[in-house]
Amino acid sequence: MTTTRFFVYGSFCEGMVHFNKIQNFLESSVLARVKATAYRLKVGFPAIVKAGSDLVPGQLVELKSSELLLSLMDEFHGYNRHDPEQSLYSREEVDVYPEGSSAPVRAWIYFLNPLKLPVNAAVIPGGDWKRSLEEHPSLTSKLSEKQVTYIQKLGKSTGREIVPIDLTLYRELMNLELIVDKGRRLALSKLGQEVYKHLA
């Protein structure tokens, strides 16, 4: 089986919420950096845009490659190889700088489509998203167990059924802008969908 190099950052790094998605395919991993600009999304996790000269930290991983893994990674990042311009992210091969090595290596990375960058996204100074998360933890880490459970239930629902909620929880989630009231039923807001995606 062949291996494929990826530069991963944010929620896909070791110890983060989505690392388990690639853990079983992992052949090797080293700390590395890539030239780009990192933005902090409202959910708290970073997105990287292909522009700028910040050396953004992450991990260079070698994964046991398969079409299935690539399809799952593409799907998670909203990348459609048949329509890259309309995709949420693009998958590109770029120079990555492993720690302790002077020579760059080529690896795949998911860049956020600049046209899809939310207006409330903030540039992370120097690209240091790890420090940004330490200083201001992600929204997902601030939620109560009750809030997490409800978001997961709503996220898994088909949208036709009514997911019961009490008034206190309703107010909390509305104030956090995680749900929208559609009259007869509730649904996750855009931010709520992002939070749902980042829950373990």
Rank of each mutant, 00 (worst) to 15 (best):
Y9K: 02
F7T: 04
P125A: 14
R184C: 07
I22M: 08
E194M: 09
F25I: 00
R171V: 12
G155L: 04
A47E: 08
Y89F: 15
V61C: 12
G58I: 05
G192L: 02
G159N: 04
E99R: 04
A122M: 09
I179Y: 02
S157H: 01
G52D: 10
F7G: 04
L188N: 06
P137A: 03
T2D: 13
R184D: 15
L188K: 04
N120M: 03
R81Y: 06
V195T: 05
S28M: 11
F19L: 09
I124N: 06
Q23A: 15
Q152F: 00
R40F: 07
H77P: 00
F111C: 12
L70I: 10
R160N: 13
Q147N: 08
P57M: 06
L169A: 10
H136W: 01
L199R: 02
D181E: 06
H198Y: 15
V30D: 11
E161Q: 01
S101N: 08
E67C: 07
S132E: 15
G159P: 04
Q59N: 07
F7R: 01
R160C: 03
A36H: 06
M174L: 14
P118A: 06
L191C: 10
Q193L: 15
C13A: 09
G192H: 01
P104S: 15
V148W: 00
L115C: 06
S53P: 00
V119I: 10
S65Y: 03
L69F: 01
G100P: 02
R40D: 08
H77R: 00
N120L: 09
K146V: 11
V34M: 13
S102V: 07
Q86T: 13
R81P: 15
G159I: 01
E134A: 14
F76Q: 08
L55T: 05
R91N: 10
V163P: 04
E134D: 14
H82A: 12
T140C: 15
L69A: 07
M1I: 00
L69N: 06
S29K: 12
F19T: 03
P57H: 03
S90W: 10
S189K: 01
P98D: 11
G155V: 01
V180F: 00
F76H: 13
R160D: 14
I151W: 02
V195A: 07
T3E: 13
E145W: 01
V17F: 01
V94K: 11
P98E: 10
F25P: 00
I124F: 04
T2G: 08
G155M: 09
G15I: 04
G127L: 10
Y170L: 15
M1D: 07
K42V: 02
K35Y: 11
A122H: 05
V163Q: 01
S144E: 12
Y196W: 08
Y150F: 14
P98V: 05
G10A: 05
I165A: 02
Y97T: 08
D95F: 06
S53Q: 14
G127H: 08
K35N: 14
S53R: 11
E93S: 12
R40C: 03
Y150A: 05
K197V: 00
K142R: 15
H136R: 09
A32H: 03
Q59S: 12
M174W: 00
Q193K: 14
L88S: 04
H198A: 06
R33P: 00
E194I: 00
L143P: 11
L191Q: 03
L169S: 11
